[in-house]
Simulated scan of single mutants.
Amino acid sequence: MNPKDPDPARNPYRSLGRGMAFVASLLMLGMFYLYFQNSLQARNHPNRDLQIAPGAELVLKRSGDGHYVFPGTINGRPVSFLLDTGATLVSVPAHLAEELGLEAGAYQQSITANGTVVTRTTRIGALAFGPFVLRNVPASLNPGMAGDQMLLGMSVLKHLEFTQRGDTLRLRPLAGE
């Protein structure tokens, strides 16, 4: 076996070189994937690890799609909130009601961005995010919401002062609450 043998069928070093080049290419693609995956996660979910500022203030960064999305809990169970100043109540996907310990109440009509929907009233025993904990929060169970994200509406936001500058939103408790 001569490495300079012109007959490729008899030269094992040539196929070994191609195999190593293929493996190196796969490793490079994997490294690019991990790098860009982390970059996308940071851009699309900048609040996944909430930073709580001194004085019970919560600072949120806008995600890549222009929304403020952040983790919290409903009745002690982890959830993802999307801040929605256009929502009157906290809106919970109806398929999560049992998992979150929520009881469906009276039927009501809710006007959403997707049109009018029949929802059910409910009350959230404990809703928490960052330094904030609210109890007995009015909410609705929306059967039209397919995902796992909760809309954090004005039934919560009315208890907070919020200021937006650029891509940063600061939430603070209202004076006297």
Score class of each variant (00 low, 15 high):
129 F>G: 06
125 G>A: 14
72 G>V: 04
162 F>T: 05
59 V>W: 09
19 G>A: 14
3 P>M: 02
152 L>P: 07
150 M>K: 06
116 T>Y: 01
16 L>C: 06
158 K>L: 12
118 V>A: 11
34 L>M: 11
153 G>P: 07
120 R>C: 02
170 R>W: 14
146 A>N: 11
104 A>I: 02
22 F>H: 13
145 M>Q: 14
32 F>M: 14
115 G>E: 03
111 I>D: 09
90 V>M: 08
86 G>M: 08
4 K>F: 12
62 R>G: 02
177 E>I: 08
8 P>G: 06
1 M>D: 10
115 G>H: 05
5 D>S: 07
164 Q>Y: 04
50 L>D: 08
101 G>L: 06
169 L>H: 10
114 N>I: 00
158 K>C: 11
69 V>W: 03
99 E>C: 00
100 L>H: 03
121 T>Q: 13
35 Y>I: 10
163 T>L: 11
133 V>E: 15
100 L>R: 05
91 S>H: 04
154 M>P: 09
146 A>S: 14
74 I>L: 06
57 E>W: 00
175 A>E: 15
142 N>H: 04
66 G>E: 07
23 V>G: 13
171 L>G: 07
150 M>F: 03
5 D>Y: 03
151 L>Q: 10
42 A>C: 00
12 P>A: 03
120 R>W: 01
126 A>T: 13
5 D>C: 05
125 G>V: 00
97 A>W: 05
144 G>R: 03
25 S>D: 13
30 G>S: 12
45 H>C: 00
134 L>W: 13
26 L>C: 15
67 H>C: 00
4 K>D: 15
104 A>D: 01
71 P>L: 04
95 H>L: 04
58 L>Y: 08
87 A>L: 10
15 S>T: 11
119 T>C: 13
116 T>N: 07
98 E>W: 02
101 G>H: 06
167 D>R: 11
163 T>E: 15
19 G>R: 15
20 M>S: 13
81 F>T: 04
140 S>N: 14
95 H>V: 06
103 E>R: 13
67 H>G: 02
27 L>H: 12
162 F>V: 01
140 S>D: 12
116 T>V: 14
20 M>L: 15
29 L>W: 10
84 D>H: 03
156 V>F: 11
153 G>K: 06
126 A>F: 06
122 T>R: 04
159 H>N: 14
135 R>D: 09
29 L>D: 14
15 S>L: 12
162 F>L: 14
72 G>S: 09
153 G>L: 08
76 G>D: 03
165 R>K: 14
41 Q>T: 10
107 Y>N: 06
62 R>T: 08
114 N>C: 00
74 I>K: 04
89 L>R: 11
91 S>C: 09
7 D>Q: 07
149 Q>V: 15
126 A>W: 01
84 D>C: 05
71 P>V: 01
21 A>E: 15
172 R>K: 15
12 P>F: 08
8 P>Q: 07
155 S>Q: 07
34 L>A: 14
49 D>F: 11
46 P>V: 05
47 N>D: 04
132 F>E: 06
70 F>T: 02
9 A>Q: 13
47 N>M: 02
87 A>F: 09
2 N>K: 10
46 P>W: 05
145 M>F: 02
53 A>K: 08
61 K>D: 10
10 R>S: 14
101 G>T: 05
116 T>A: 13
147 G>W: 01
153 G>T: 05
128 A>M: 07
53 A>T: 09
8 P>F: 13
59 V>Y: 02
